[in-house]
């Protein structure tokens, strides 16, 4: 099992970037708060992130690869927590700015995914 499964990573990146585009459209149209379909997409994204936490931590345990383990585990787990916090802020602030928080959250997830990849492949 690979620590950062390239397919999982790809799915997370595609979903978060798709959601980011959707978020930009909502910001431009000044739609807030986001509807159920949007939160459904975030839910799907979180499901993939949850799978990633499990596979990431398990392979961190069994792999003898030289990885900054603490940092890797921290990124792996924190990536799952970003979206719920962002969604909570977006529901409190029901304006364009609240929706912008979701954009920040999604881009944070995408950036953390790239960092996870770099941590798992330090010399790639």
């Amino acid at each position: 099992m690979t620590g950062v499964n390239v397919w999982l990573l790809g799915i997370v990146l595609v979903l978060s970037l798709a959601a980011a585009v959707w978020t930009v459209v909502m910001i431009v149209r000044d739609q807030s708060p986001p509807g159920d379909a949007y939160f459904g997409l975030l839910g799907a994204l979180m499901l993939v992130l949850a799978v990633q936490v499990v596979t990431g931590l398990v392979s961190l345990g069994v792999s003898d690869r030289v990885v900054e383990k603490v940092t890797f585990a921290a990124y792996d787990v924190t990536a799952l927590l970003v979206l719920p916090v962002g969604a909570a802020l977006a529901l409190v602030e029901r304006s364009r700015w609240g929706t912008t928080v979701l954009l920040v959250a999604l881009l944070t997830v995408a950036a953390m995914e790239l960092r996870l990849w770099a941590l798992w492949n330090p010399h790639a």
């Binding site: 916090v85 962002g86 802020l89 602030e93 700015w97 912008t100 928080v101 920040v104």
Partner: peptide, 12 residues
Amino acid sequence: GPGRVLVAVYGV
């Protein structure tokens, strides 16, 4: 308002 976005980025 815009402060909410700043809180989010600063939080990160």
